[in-house]
Amino acid sequence: MKTRFRPGSFFLSAYGWLFLTFIYVPILLIVVFSFNANPVNMMIWDGFTLDWYRTIFGFPTTLNEQTLYVESTAQLYSAVLNSLTVAFLTTLVSTIFGTAVALAVARFRFRLKSFYRALMFMPMIMPDIILGIALLIFFVSFGFSLGLQTIVIGHTTFLCSYVFVVVSARLADMDESLEEASADLGADGWTTFRRVTLPMIAPGVIGGAMLAFIISMDDLVITYFISGVDSTTLPVHIYGMLRRGIKPEINAIATIMLLSSFVIASIGLYLRARKK
């Protein structure tokens, strides 16, 4: 876009880099200070240490007992395990549901189509606190015991919308005549789906599934309301830790989470690049 509308190209560039600094400096601070040996003030550099990482993995450290904080490594591990379990199950179910509805809306003619579009749109614009309290009221009044199963149900209600949107976009780009050709050549519905439709929408389905997985892993608000006492997920666990007090161990946990986010993001972008 070459135009004469340039209110100071130099200042704009400087601003651009400043903006990126604003986005990335806070994240870098966590990483840097997770190696800080100062147990009293986390923000004054006092030499390099791996002690905070040793603490969260339960290895012996050079720290004395008083400066140690991690409540229980077992609790942290179970939170991670809960998060992964929930995210896998949620992703599986919501990918199936979201894809099925997307296929129905894109490839069939029926009267309630606009209703389904609205239904799939609603969870995305619903403030998460509303969905959280509504699910809590629902589960408690119908006698569900709160636990991993309620978290999976809760996440699925809004994550199938995300899958629906991603898969629908893919279906809209797709050439319908290929499916017609397959049918004309005598393939039955299932064969057409398996050999033509599915391979073509696969990138959309995978993209939707990854999005669902990431959002499920990260969801705090809805999980906060509907997780039982023994079934906290990682974000809820960390939120609890933060509310009890800021200690250096959290830096180390946060850094590990950052690292895994970067790995997941790069895998996703790699897959997307390969698709092209």
């Binding site: 806070p26 994240i27 892993m217 960390i238 939120y239 933060l242």
Partner: peptide, 13 residues
Amino acid sequence: FISLIVRLFAWVL
């Protein structure tokens, strides 16, 4: 992609 709680923790620090 980065956890919301981690990004907020940065600002607490």
